[in-house]
Structure formats: structure tokens, C-alpha cells
Nucleic acid binder design. Sequence first.
DNA 1: ATCGTGGACTTAACCAGTAAAGTCAACGCC
DNA 2: GGCGTTGACTTTACTGGTTAAGTCCACGAT
Lengths: 361, 361
Amino acid sequence: MWAAAPPCGTGIRLAGGLEAVDRRPTMADIANRAGVSRMAVSYALNGRAGVSDELRERIVRIARELGFSASAPARELRGAVVQAIGLTMRRPSSTAFNVEVFRRELISGIQSELMRHRFGLALQSVADAEDELAVYRRWSSERRVAGVLVCDLEVGDPRPAALEELDLPAVIIGGPPPGTTRLASIWSDDGRAIAEAVAYLAALGHRRTVHVGGPPQLLHSAVRSAAYGTACAAAGIEPVVVPADYTGEMGAQVTRRLLSAAPPPTAVIYDNDVMAVAGLGVAMEMGIRVPDDLSIVAGDDSALCQVVRPPLTVLKRDIAGYGAHAAGLLLDVVDGGAPGAVLDHAAELVVRSSTAPAPRH
Amino acid sequence: MWAAAPPCGTGIRLAGGLEAVDRRPTMADIANRAGVSRMAVSYALNGRAGVSDELRERIVRIARELGFSASAPARELRGAVVQAIGLTMRRPSSTAFNVEVFRRELISGIQSELMRHRFGLALQSVADAEDELAVYRRWSSERRVAGVLVCDLEVGDPRPAALEELDLPAVIIGGPPPGTTRLASIWSDDGRAIAEAVAYLAALGHRRTVHVGGPPQLLHSAVRSAAYGTACAAAGIEPVVVPADYTGEMGAQVTRRLLSAAPPPTAVIYDNDVMAVAGLGVAMEMGIRVPDDLSIVAGDDSALCQVVRPPLTVLKRDIAGYGAHAAGLLLDVVDGGAPGAVLDHAAELVVRSSTAPAPRH
DNA sequence: ATCGTGGACTTAACCAGTAAAGTCAACGCC
DNA sequence: GGCGTTGACTTTACTGGTTAAGTCCACGAT
């Protein structure tokens, strides 16, 4: 019946005890060895009914001996969900969005959640929105990922609509877009954190504050700038918002301009860490003491903020946790859930040494 | 002959003109529409002989209309190389290796090269070496990636041998391991860059220099520390090597200790940017002027080094280019090439404002 | 004694491609 | 007029795993 079927792994046996086979072992190889059909192997390895305990045990043993694990392409071809999710990254060259710390932390958190579910992460860098949509289309039609995470939504962003049309599971990181969408999303109440920072500065006596934001077309940046305005109104102080682009160069340039004004601000809230550190450098260069003459708050925490002198007061949040939460949500969506818009923890103010009472002149 | 075969895409037509189909279009769908066999479609779309120009054109048009692209799982099942390569990342928690800038830049470069070849990048975070080997084994037996890039080789690293045994194409970033290996690798002559820095400091009159390195078990770190020793010998000055771990905390701690010694060093070469910035912070905190009392050289360049005051003198290299080069090499290996050990550009000294002639006492 | 019934398997079919071999007409050639 | 040779396709078979539909035997109940 199993006439002279050559067993898999006639290759050389290596010192390690593993086999160097010409091709990776398949279920058919295991079936040959065990003298049963391929289906018996499938049932046995997937823990399903239809094989005796004795046979199951034997098959599992052989599979282990052969170092077998099922071919992902074969499984996926048969319709199983691809055990990977996708994430695109805009090229840092264009507008160097939050890549510095936020993205890296986020990816780290995403990874940790995916690892728990044995999912992989497919990263793809893209040049622009059009390119990104093309990647989503390709991922969808080639069945390369089970779903995608989307970051840095902009005003009028075409991505949510495109993803709905592609019927590709997705989670939008940073909250639902203003229009109607069925896509799941996750967001944190950045407004509350900003309000906390403004209230703290106001309590320290600061009346001339500035918010150095990100590109205004970025939704999350716009939300924070707006929250800054609201918080200032509540504190009875005049809001000043200066858009920037999250780079150190622009952070330095903007700060130089601000500190040359008469009167200069007594406190600046930067929307990320890199701009804040650059701003600190400019203040030192201009002989302006931090925190005596100028208070600085950074919108993200990182090693960077603790390493500079003085260490920066920051709006800290668990970015990795945020990423893990987002990835978990996407896995729910892939499994057929429809979680809607989920709120993650808000950032909180961590006071270090770059903030102090406003100077008295 | 094609009796009443229902054409694919009987679904709803959306406004955009794209079709919302219950399942993604396949070659069989195209074949049905064109009234030909599946193979004719395969030949036509792959640009192979066996179909008339007229039919080919028609098939290509239908494929475009349907938004077809070939299923990756099916292609891969048939033996095509998986259009993705793998890269593992050790968890930042353990020993926070070069993750800060180096890794991010490297990934960016890898991406740009992969994008050109329509390859994806599978990222997987791992806890330790054992975990990492398990991931390689899984990637190999499940056929998830065509090859892998390996970073941060350590003394006695088990990875090269394991990868050879798995017969998984790989490129080792950071040079060939000391033992014999057939694996391809890429490296840059870090020794020359370090020598340049030491020669420069010696020319400025520094006699008491220190090299704050990475963990000594890391091969690339050990290579640079050794090169520092050699260069000092050549310049006739005493080498002092202090191992650290690339984190800001340790950079600060080590620097505090060094600057408290009598006599303190007049120049410190840090093996990465984060430690250098931390060291600068400590110097300021201790009232030691940079560069007047202390010269600082950072072993990597980043926005960070230009943003602090004074901007740091660095050993700059094109990390993204290095990553792109490595990825290109891996694609060669996947295609059957055997490139051996390839040398990339060496780093070069970029002098900014953190280095000056040694103080005269 | 016969009819379920369920356990332990096997066989056939399928997913979406591709390699290889087969078919069939038109054409050129001696 | 038969024969080899293309060109343009079609058929068949195969990749590796899974679903669905048998097959066969033993055991229990009617």
C-alpha cells in the first residue's frame, strides 16, 4: 500500500541531531513514516477528534523528530487568516513625523502583543499617501496581512474610506476621523493632559505661554493645539500656537524666534521631545536660564528628556502600552469583532526640573 | 464549454468603480471572463510565450479591471521565494542595545532597498538568543521569509551556526564572526574611524583619553575598543577603556565617576550618541566646561548630537546606506549568490563644537 | 438477528497558482 | 501528399494543508 515510499529526510544527519533535508518536511512525510494518511496527521497535529490517542502521540513524536511545522502558505491558501498584520511608515525624508520616539515605542508595544498571538508584523515604508494606499491594496489582494494599523491621520485623509472599500480590517491609532466610519480606532485623551500642563503652568504664575505644535494637518496635533487653546481660555491667559514639524531644526528655529520677541514667553509646551530638547539648547545658547527665566514642557517622554540638563518636565504616557492595546484591538477585529472607538489611558504630567514659577519682573 | 460559469464580481458596484467582491479575483475569474484557460492567463500575465499579443492584451485589461494581483500564498506554495525578509529585535528591556538611533536608521535603509524589489520586512521582537533561534526555526519551516538579517553578534554567538544548519539565507550585519562560516556578512571599518578620532584628539594635545564602550561581549563593540587601544599605542598615549551598555543612565554614571577622578580625563570617546549626550549633561552638572575642560566625541550621529549645546563632534556614518547595502546583499544571497564578507564605507569624523585643544595646566 | 451508532480512519476535492506535456490547426517544404 | 515544425492554446498534475464525505468495523440496543 505504501509501496517503497522514500521517507523524508534521507539527507545527512548533522551533529546537532537535526536533519538537513533537501526540502522541509510536510505532513505527507509524517504520514509516510507513520503509515497513515495525511488527514490522520492533520487531525492529530491540530488536536481534533478522529484519531486514537495512541496514533496521535506517535504522530506528534514523529513531527517533533522531523522538526515539522505547517507551511504558512499552504494554510493561508486554504483560507486561514494570514498570521501577520501590516504597518506602513512614511519616509522620514518627507515630513519627519513623530518617528523619533513615538513610533519606535509604539512598534515595540505592538510587537509584544503580536508575539503573544504568534503574529508577525509586516513593515513597509512608503513615500506618500498614494503609495500607502497602493500598499494596502497590494496587501489586501495578495493576502499578505490580516489587517493594518494606521497612524498619523490627517485632515481629509483618504485612508479610512479606502480601507473600508478594500474590506481590510484596520485600527486607526489616534482616534476616529471626524467623518463617519465603521473602522475601529483607539485614542487617548490628549486634551486632558494638555489641560493639566496648562493649569500647572498657570498655577506657577505663567501668563505668556506658547504651544509649539506639530503640522496642523495632522489630526492628533490639531486636537492638542485646540485643547491648549481651551485650557488657556479656562485659565484666563492668552494662547499662542506655533505650528512646527517635530524636527529638532524647526524646534530650534521657532524657539530662537520666540525668545527674541519682546516680551518673550515664560513657558513653552513642545508637542514632542526632540523639539523640546532643541528648544532647551537654544535657550542655553541665548543665555536664558531654564527653568529660572523659561519653563519647558515636552509632549513626549524619552531617555532624551532625562539625559539633558535640566531634565525636562514631560507629558508622559505609556506609548508601548498604547501600541499593544491597538494591536490587541486589531486582532479582535480580524476575529470578527467590531470594537468601535476605544479610549486608552491619557498622558500625565511628570514634573522634573525644567519648570518653575514664572520670573517676577 | 465554459457553461454558465458565473463571472467573478457579481457583487455590488461601488461609486469608485472598484468592485466589492465576496472574494478576491483569481486567475480563474479572469479566464472565465476571457473565455480561455487558466494557463493562458498565467502565461499572459507573466509575460511568457504561448499567447498571442491580442489575447495577452485582453487578459491584462481584464486583470486590471478586476484589480487582480496574484495570491502570494498560492505562488509561495508552488515554491516561489517568499517576498519578505526577516529581522528580529531584542526587547529593549533586557540590555538596551544600540536601539536608539542605529537600529531605526538601519531599518529605514533596509526598507528603502526592499521597497525597490517589492519585498516586505517581517519584524519580530524576541526576548533572548534562544527565543531568537526559535523564531528563525519557525520562519524557516513555515516558509515565512526568504532570508534574515542578523545584528549585534556576540562572542560565541550561536546564531551563525544555527542559521547554517537551517539553511536559511542570512547576512550578518557587523562583519563575519571570528570562526569559520559560509554566511555572507557586511561590515564597516570602525577601527579606522576610531583611529582617526584618537589621532585628532592627540593632535589637539590630549593625553588622558577614555573610551566608553558598549557591552564587551558585543563583537562590534569589542572591535572598536580594541581599535582604540591600538590607536592610542600609535599616538603614544595611555588607553583607558570603560565598558558600558549604551544607555543614558550608565553613560551618566560612568562619566560622573570618570570626572571625579584625579586627574580627570581631558577627552572622552563614547561609543554611541545617547551615552555622549548623557555624559555632556553630567559635565554641565559638575561645572566642567565642554569643550574647554573636556572634549567629547560621540560614536554615532543623530539629530540629538546636533541639538544639544555644544553640538557634538561625532563619528558619522551612513547607517541607512549600510542597511540598504545589507538588504541588497541578502537579496543576492536569496537569489543564489554567495557574496562573502563585504566592506561598507567607514565612518568619518565630523568635528562640531564639543572638541577643542586640551586644557593647559 | 438486525439495525443503528460512533470511533478511527481513508478518499476525494479544493484553495490559486505554475510546470510540463498534450492537442490541433496552419504553414512550409521536399 | 505526407511530414516536420511552429504557434497558440488546453489538459493534467502538483505544491501542502484542510473540509467534507465516505468506508469499515465493533459494539449496543431492539
